[in-house]
Design a protein around this nucleic acid. Sequence first.
DNA 1: GCCGTTTTCGGCCCGACTGTTTTCAGTCG
Length: 576
Amino acid sequence: MRNAEVCAIFREMAAIMEILGEDPYRIRAYQRAVQNIENLPEDIAVIAARGELTKIPGIGKELARKIEEILATGTLQKYEELKRKVPPGLVELLQVPGIGPKTAKLLYERLGVKSLAELEQLAKEGKLKGLPGIGAKTEENIRRGIALLRSVEERRPLGLVLPLARAVVNLLREKAPVKRVDLAGSIRRFKETVGDVDILAASTRPEEVIKIFTTLPLVAEVLAQGPTKASVRTGDGLQIDLRVVPPESYGAALCYFTGSKAHNIRVRELAVKQGLKVNEYGVFRGEERIAGATEEEVYAAVGLPYIPPEIREDWGEIEAALEGRLPDLVELKDIKGDFHVHSKYSDGAATLEEIAAEARKLGLEWVAICDHSPALKVAGGLDAPTLLKKKEAIERFNAKSPDVKLLCGVEVDILLDGTLDYPNEVLAQLDVVVAAIHTGLRQSKEVQTKRLLAAAANPYVHAIAHPTGRLLGEREPYELDLEAVFTAAARTGTWLEINAYYKRLDLNDINARAAAARGVEFTIGTDAHLLEQMEFLELGVGVARRAWLTREKVINTLSYEELLARLRAKKEVLGE
DNA sequence: GCCGTTTTCGGCCCGACTGTTTTCAGTCG
């Protein structure tokens, strides 16, 4: 994939043009192109080879030509020219919170600042204040902005932030004079990582709400505070923003703060064409507010049906909504089972009984117990005799359990040559076979693809677990021809897993959507090794919804009896 | 630089907070 390479160049060009003070709409065109290219499920070089670059939204003739130049030469004439106009370190100044293009330019022209390091030095020495528009406070903010940039400031996995975010919402519901409080922003859209937490409240006494928020015990620092809006930072550096609006504006504000920004812009453009104005207070015709209390009302006012938060990304949902073909997305309450849980038999912490009890608590009907195979010695992979003992134990459990049923499964390793870590005679005796790569992660694209294709072709393999192997913030996906994998999965009736463990979320939203378009069906598995990790199921559902999946595409919506029938079907299609 | 039911030119989403300034530019989301 060369998408990141193209994006890096366009992104830096936009930053340089900002510093140079060039046409903001041209800059936005580059930024919009970056956003759209980043979200492509396909290699841009392949799209270019088909001559379809201008089919990408925001890519016209000129940017298409530039992309082709980058693909052919590895760089871009115009980019090289721009770089010569601005010292290399100046662009990185834009990463400091509070420093935009104007300030960066000012710092360079008046003080000769050419890098983050130089800026840090001057800020420490107190030499920034006195510049036009920069006083002692701005200087202090710049100092702290740099320190923050240096410390962590990365996006965090959604699964880590969600419990804290919900706790803050609950605190506000208890303590503050609010009519409503909800999470908004990327958390509400179930994006896999979170930059900061956005919370929205409806109240007729906003200043009291803000006061209570900024004095919560978990607040380490108040970054900004006005009568209706505040930003704070927690002890471990997480930023939380709260906005308070009047109840009659709550729906409009919830739309506004849920985003995505790209989605909001499209909605506002639609409104403008109809002579309307949309902001966080409502939908307006002239001075008159014609909608705003609920999100449904806001969408209806601009001629759209309600669009679920998870797909508000400007990935085609506006067009789909206008044409009345929005998907009926799968919901957490549709999910009847967890397809991938580890037990004490391998490296899980819980017994069969404990897992079943947790499933009952979560309202599930079935759980596939998928422990590791022998090759994964570190994870206590089971030898075949032990596996058969597990099968008997599960049968005994099921005989006594009228509601929750367990399925005897494995997460069998796909070995380097594409063969599986159990012989087919063993696999044939199991309810569920999930195959996965855990070793040999650095093989070539050809080898990795062959391994997955071989696994998919096995008549006993029901699903491929965490197909790309990525770990959020820790490990890149391994090299893979995803198109080939999707095609093979569709042809063989092999399901692809949406692994719901918070660090994996693999397949991700974009890839799952591309796979679904190829006719692939999906399993959702938490890969839980501890009981409480079974709650990650909702993260998997979030990915599925972001991938536009309906319940028909998700195997977990089947009842136990329906599932057993489907599990047998693959053997009959491809079996001996 | 993109784009088109205001279509090949002339538009391009909207408002809050900060810090500095005496009415607003810059930044952010």
